[in-house]
Design a protein around this nucleic acid. Structure first.
Length: 112
DNA sequence: ATAATGACGTCGG
DNA sequence: TCCGACGCCATTA
């Protein structure tokens, strides 16, 4: 189930910009138990910065495994911190007592 | 066209 | 660790 094959997709669902779609694709590609930072995704796509990625997540995050995307320092965006940590711990991601993810251990790097 | 926005990143104090 | 300042840049208003 995803934003792509939603049978109830409204006509303007195509109004989602191509770049936004790329972002969502990358997020969808993150394996269970691994994470990527907004900056990681931006760098992987090229031609855009972390803030564009953040904006896409704010608008369409609920259609993808959004909890696998967090800040470069391993902390979660405050807006979703609790729910996100719950998801991550459930997937076996290493989270410190202060709610900080060990990026070195959990970071996913897409090939190519 | 111009300006504001955003679940960010990096650096300096 | 906690700010604030600045860079970032496609998308929206």
């Amino acid at each position: 189930m995803s934003w792509r094959d939603d049978p109830f997709a409204r006509p303007d669902a195509d109004a989602v910009t191509p770049r936004a779609l790329r972002v969502l694709e990358v997020v969808t590609s993150i394996p269970l138990g691994r994470v990527m930072s907004y900056g990681d995704i931006a760098a992987h796509l090229g031609g855009c910065g972390p803030r564009q990625v953040a904006k896409v997540m704010a608008a369409h995050g609920d259609e993808v495994p959004w909890w696998r995307v967090l800040r470069a320092d391993g902390r979660c965006a405050p807006e979703v911190r609790d729910r996100q940590l719950a998801h991550l711990r459930r997937e076996g991601v290493e989270v410190s007592a202060s709610g900080r993810v060990n990026m070195t251990a959990a970071r996913h790097t897409p090939e190519e």
